Amino acid sequence: MNNTHLHPSILKDGPISIGFVLAPNFTLSAFSNFLDAIRLAADDGDLSRPIFFSWDVISHDYQPIKSSCNIKVVPTRTIYDRKHYDYIVVVGGLLQNNQKLPNQSIEFLLEAAKAKTTLIGICTGTFILARAGLLKTSKVCISWFHHDQFINEFPKIKANADSLFTIDNQFITCSGGIGALHLAAHLIERHRGKYEAVQSLRILQSDFPLPAQSLQPPPTTLTSARSAKVKKAILFIEKNIRNPLTVASIASNLNVSTRHLERLFMKELGVSPTRLYLKLRLAHANKLIRQSTYSISYVASECGFIDLSHFCRSFKDEFGITASTAREQYSMHSVRINGVLVQ
């Protein structure tokens, strides 16, 4: 159940203490979005004094930790200091390079969990908590971008890619990006008040704090959708490009009739769910053709087309050129820019 039980430190004297554990190649924006909101709420005025909140970057040593954009952050405290934290925030990063937290940091997280410290996973930090065996019975939030990989690795963990963040007793998980900002605002409101949370976001030129169940921004350019049902339907579509769902299945997941979902799409986007699904699959195919060396038949399969001839006809109808021509244009462009032929 997604509840709002948080650490009893809301009642304590002194600042709320937050420890950041940064994974190798961590996502800098997720870290900075969360921390900057907290920093602005830690003091009255823009002096950044840690009066109401305090924070450390924790590691097993003082070696700089490189982010995914090559900016490095130097830890301010080691795990061996045994300092108590009200929250420990694990900020994840790139998954494909298979870099992991040092064993000492994993042990630190396990000890904190035993001590009932609230643990927060931001971005792929949720993968780190899950791999440490800490989320077996929890409901978690994961970015739509990593959702498929997460459920493949952890099929027994209940994961959603709809909300910005999820609070489940001792564990809080967050999609990252703007979700980290609004999670920080949520904690600010819990410990300082609504005004301080709003003020912190205003200084950062963001909107009012959004609740946990707010939908993640759709991973498309179709931001004109207003209905929560339409936005959720788009998320279902994006998460199932390779194995397309039927419109009836999407409607059933949203507890609406197929006809009602079709009316919502036409009203808000001027296109049917079926047509949108096809356009997004073809857009993904176009990107793969122009930015990868995969064969056209492989691209068709990756985008949910069983019949290659159907894919080729649909591609030409959508973009006015064949898939082969699109690949040739990409190759010519690569020669002109890089001096080599990319195939």
Rank of each mutant, 00 (worst) to 15 (best):
314 S>K: 14
122 I>T: 10
208 F>S: 11
14 G>H: 00
250 I>N: 12
263 R>L: 14
107 E>K: 13
31 F>W: 09
151 I>L: 03
132 A>E: 01
31 F>R: 05
94 L>G: 02
140 V>G: 10
202 R>W: 07
233 A>T: 11
297 S>P: 01
114 K>M: 10
163 S>A: 15
75 P>A: 09
168 D>E: 00
52 F>D: 12
199 Q>E: 13
292 S>K: 14
125 G>R: 09
75 P>W: 08
341 L>S: 10
323 A>F: 14
194 K>D: 01
107 E>A: 09
169 N>G: 04
289 I>M: 07
171 F>N: 13
280 L>F: 08
50 P>L: 02
332 M>V: 05
112 A>R: 12
31 F>L: 10
222 L>T: 00
135 L>K: 06
68 S>Q: 12
201 L>R: 07
206 S>T: 13
39 R>D: 10
48 S>V: 03
55 W>L: 11
328 E>Y: 12
24 P>E: 11
73 V>A: 02
181 L>P: 06
125 G>H: 08
195 Y>N: 11
184 A>H: 10
96 Q>R: 11
87 Y>P: 12
192 R>T: 08
242 R>V: 08
267 K>T: 11
19 G>Y: 07
164 L>E: 07
128 I>P: 05
187 L>N: 05
275 R>L: 07
19 G>V: 05
271 V>Y: 04
158 K>H: 11
26 F>Y: 15
34 F>C: 04
156 K>C: 06
334 S>K: 13
134 L>W: 06
160 N>L: 00
231 K>I: 10
254 L>I: 00
88 I>T: 10
234 I>A: 02
92 G>H: 06
216 Q>A: 15
97 N>L: 12
151 I>H: 05
66 K>C: 06
39 R>Q: 14
158 K>D: 15
142 I>Q: 03
81 D>G: 01
2 N>R: 11
34 F>E: 04
315 F>C: 05
308 L>W: 02
101 L>Q: 06
301 S>I: 03
77 R>C: 07
39 R>T: 15
77 R>I: 12
316 K>P: 01
296 I>L: 14
12 K>N: 04
20 F>G: 15
116 K>M: 06
114 K>T: 13
239 K>T: 13
157 I>M: 10
87 Y>C: 09
276 L>H: 00
337 I>D: 08
38 I>D: 14
120 I>R: 02
203 I>L: 10
173 T>R: 04
131 R>H: 03
49 R>W: 11
7 H>G: 00
46 D>S: 03
215 L>I: 15
246 T>E: 09
321 I>M: 14
174 C>I: 00
113 A>S: 13
314 S>Q: 13
288 L>V: 09
8 P>G: 02
318 E>M: 15
100 K>R: 13
211 P>H: 08
272 S>H: 02
92 G>I: 03
16 I>C: 00
250 I>L: 12
231 K>Y: 05
158 K>C: 07
33 N>E: 15
79 I>G: 03
184 A>G: 13
133 G>Q: 01
244 P>E: 05
273 P>C: 08
